[in-house]
Simulated assay, not measured.
Amino acid sequence: MGKVQSSEELMKYINEMNSDNSVVQFSIPGKGKFTLVLQEEDEQSIKSDVEKNPQLERMFKESEEQYKKGLGISTADLLKSFSEKDFM
């Protein structure tokens, strides 16, 4: 298990992930232990799930609307919000 000391180091872990290296375990001092799992996108699967479940489609639309209104943040913005003190 690796110890992540910065957001750049976390991004390095993420960038190195692929289908053969799809699980990464790491710890952030002061935050805890994390397991990151890469799940390859399967657009057809998501589309068929939405078609089968109208509530899921509604949830996707609501989520998109909330993001457009600024009520959510992207992963990149989340990573930018970390400072060095978060890793000490």
Results as ranks from 00 to 15, higher is better:
Gln5Asp: 06
Met17Thr: 09
Ile28Gly: 01
Ser48Arg: 11
Ile14Met: 15
Gly72His: 10
Asp77Tyr: 04
Met88Pro: 11
Phe87Met: 00
Met59His: 09
Thr75Ser: 10
Glu43Ala: 13
Asp20Arg: 14
Leu10Ala: 08
Lys3Thr: 15
Asp86Val: 01
Ser45Thr: 10
Phe26Arg: 04
Leu78Asp: 06
Ser7Ile: 02
Met17Ile: 07
Glu8Val: 05
Leu56Val: 00
Phe34Gln: 05
Gln5Phe: 08
Lys61Cys: 07
Val24Ala: 09
Pro29Thr: 10
Ser22Asp: 13
Leu10Glu: 01
Ser19Asn: 12
Val24Arg: 15
Ile28Arg: 00
Asn15Lys: 14
Leu79Phe: 11
Asn18Asp: 15
Glu8Gln: 12
Asn18Lys: 07
Val4Thr: 08
Glu9Gly: 08
Pro54His: 05
Ser19Thr: 14
Gly72Thr: 11
Pro29Phe: 00
Leu38Trp: 06
Leu10Gln: 00
Asn21Asp: 12
Asn53Ile: 01
Met88Leu: 15
Asn21Trp: 04
Phe60Ser: 00
Ser27Ala: 08
Gly30Val: 01
Glu65Ser: 09
Gln5Cys: 03
Met59Ser: 10
Lys68Arg: 14
Ala76Phe: 09
Gly30Glu: 03
Asp77Lys: 14
Phe34His: 09
Ser6Glu: 04
Leu71Cys: 09
Phe82Leu: 02
Leu71Thr: 05
Lys31Asp: 11
Gly70His: 01
Lys68Asn: 15
Leu71Glu: 13
Glu65Trp: 09
Gln66Met: 11
Ala76Pro: 06
Val37Glu: 12
Asp77Gly: 06
Glu84Lys: 14
Met11Gly: 04
Leu56Ala: 11
Phe26Val: 02
Lys69Gly: 06
Lys52Glu: 12
Lys85Asp: 10
Glu65Leu: 12
Met88Cys: 03
Lys31Glu: 00
Lys80Cys: 06
Asn21Leu: 05
Leu71Trp: 05
Ile28Tyr: 00
Tyr67His: 12
Gly72Ala: 15
Lys68Ile: 08
Ser27Pro: 06
Ser81Gln: 10
Leu38Thr: 05
Lys31Phe: 00
Ser83Tyr: 04
Gly30Gln: 06
Ser74Phe: 03
Gln25Leu: 04
Lys3Gly: 03
Pro54Leu: 02
Glu16Tyr: 00
Ser63Gly: 15
Phe26Thr: 06
Glu8His: 09
Met11Asn: 13
Ser45Leu: 12
Ser48Glu: 15
Arg58Trp: 03
Glu62Ala: 11
Ser6Gln: 05
Ser63Thr: 12
Asp20Ser: 14
Val23Ser: 05
Glu9Thr: 01
Gly32Leu: 06
Ala76Gln: 14
Gln44Trp: 06
Ser27Val: 07
Leu38Met: 06
Gly72Lys: 14
Asp77Gln: 14
Lys33Thr: 10
Gly2Glu: 13
Glu65Gln: 13
Ser74Leu: 04
Ser48Tyr: 05
Lys80Glu: 10
Lys47Asn: 09
Asp49His: 07
Asp86Gly: 08
Val50Tyr: 02
Thr35His: 05
Val37Ser: 08
Phe60Gln: 07
